[in-house]
Amino acid sequence: MKQILLLFFLIPVNILVAQKRELDNMLYQNYKYENDSLVLLDGIPSDEFSLVNIRKEFIYDYYCQAFTKLDNGDYSKLKHWSVPIKIYLDKSIDKTIREDFTQFVKFLPKIERLSVSIVSNKNDANYYVGPVTKHIAAYDDDFYTGITFSLLTDSSDKFYGGKLIFNPKQLKNDTDIKTKLRQYFFASLGSFGFWDEFEENSLLSKDYVNTRTISKYDYTFLYRHYTLYNKNPIGNPELNKLLEKIHTTTFTNVNGRLNLKL
């Protein structure tokens, strides 16, 4: 029987050299082919975080706002924009509101990894701001009535698109619209939540009092949030470990980039 079966082994096969290298614990690798063998390279270890300008005064509570509690009880990972934000303001928005928002965007702090600009062509945009006539449901808190944002998120917890819509009829007046647009846009930079406990000068406070400038508190918040930008998104457990490590590490160069390995 074996002699008969030999008939079936006549066609030569292209023999590819088996790669000995295992796929290790690396993320987001590039690749190349060497002699028909696939080689993955340039990745980052899954437990390594590259942080910018890290400081010791990281406060855990401060970052609670950046995490969202999921239905299963876990916390979401820290979310960041991975692409420059290009906002298109709908032409139907009142001119004074458009100008106010544009000015607000210009005042946003310059932060590594975060770029925000206004574009005039909708096709060039990845962020839309505009009015709607549909009712935007309120929950148990009037603060959330009449305005909402939604973000396009990839599977690595990075944002690449967004939409901020409001129903003018559900908001009190133009000042209310201007204030809420600022607040909600700011929150959409990291899918931050709003809190009663924040000071009045914080855009993330439900009692925010509109001012012409970004408060130091908000600047610091945003700045620190983007220091934690990592290709491998940081979750609540990782952040706890990172904070622990930061608190027990002596930094000699606080202005540089720091690689921390858990």
Partner: peptide, 8 residues
């Protein structure tokens, strides 16, 4: 046939 890197 494919190498192990590709297969994984």
């Amino acid at each position: 046939y494919k190498d192990d890197v590709f297969l994984n």
